[in-house]
Simulated scan of single mutants.
Amino acid sequence: MIKEIIVVEGKDDTVAIKRAVEAETIETGGSAINADIIRRIRLAQERRGVIVFTDPDHAGERIRKIIAREVPGAKHAFLTQQAATSKGDIGVENASVTAIREALANVRTDQPAGESQISWDDLLEAGLIVHPQAAARRLAIGNRLGIGYCNGKQFYNRCRAFQITRDEFEAALQELERATDEEAQS
């Protein structure tokens, strides 16, 4: 059983989580997260800890940001959009048991943003900002690092908050470059 309580968006997400692991959930009721839900999440964080596991879409990211701001120290699990998509619908409820277990095995802890090993210049040099393919590159690197997709500023902030090391960053970048080279050769 997972010790922490997993925060999801809705009932279908709870069903998917319980198919994959033994855990308790708190449902936010979608993107309309209210003060009562935040109070429940804070209490859960104090007593057992929480893992935020929202959909890899705009609404899920909005909920994740609200919880990260209101509940310091929350852990985060991320699914790729590909792993969470079925018939054009994106959501945790669409992910396979394996994908859910992998996401929960690679949980990241939101830390107070300290000194980052990754600089804004690193993002620029890696083509993650101010580059014609920046969004696609951030998506690929974010998936490899387990921090999900976000815009350039949020990517930088997540590297800081999740304390991504230079080694992790460079390994993910090399993996992306290899995949890009292989794709160009085929």
Rank of each mutant, 00 (worst) to 15 (best):
R101S: 10
T109Y: 08
P72Y: 08
C150F: 01
G114N: 07
D181E: 15
R108W: 04
E27A: 15
D167L: 13
S119K: 02
T180L: 12
I51P: 00
I164K: 04
Q45G: 02
Q81F: 06
V130D: 15
R42L: 10
D122M: 12
M1C: 05
P132Q: 11
V97S: 10
N157Y: 14
A59C: 11
A171H: 15
I100V: 14
E170P: 00
E175S: 15
R144K: 15
K65F: 08
F169L: 00
E168F: 12
A105H: 12
D121F: 10
H131F: 07
E125Q: 14
K11F: 13
G146Q: 01
R101W: 07
Q154C: 03
H58M: 13
K75E: 09
I67T: 02
R137T: 07
V71D: 04
A184I: 11
R160E: 09
K75Y: 11
N143S: 12
V21S: 07
L145W: 00
D55K: 05
I37L: 08
V107M: 08
L124T: 10
S31E: 08
T180W: 09
V71R: 04
R138I: 01
N94I: 08
L139D: 03
I6L: 02
I141N: 00
I33W: 05
D122G: 02
R158C: 04
T98H: 05
E93V: 03
A171G: 09
M1P: 12
L43Y: 11
S116V: 05
Q163S: 14
R108C: 04
R101A: 11
V8K: 04
I118T: 01
W120Q: 09
I26E: 09
D89R: 14
S119R: 00
R137F: 06
E24W: 04
N34T: 07
D36A: 14
R137D: 01
I6Y: 00
C159L: 05
I38R: 07
A77C: 06
A83Q: 11
E102Y: 08
A99C: 09
F162S: 00
A95R: 00
E46L: 12
S96Q: 02
L176A: 09
C150A: 15
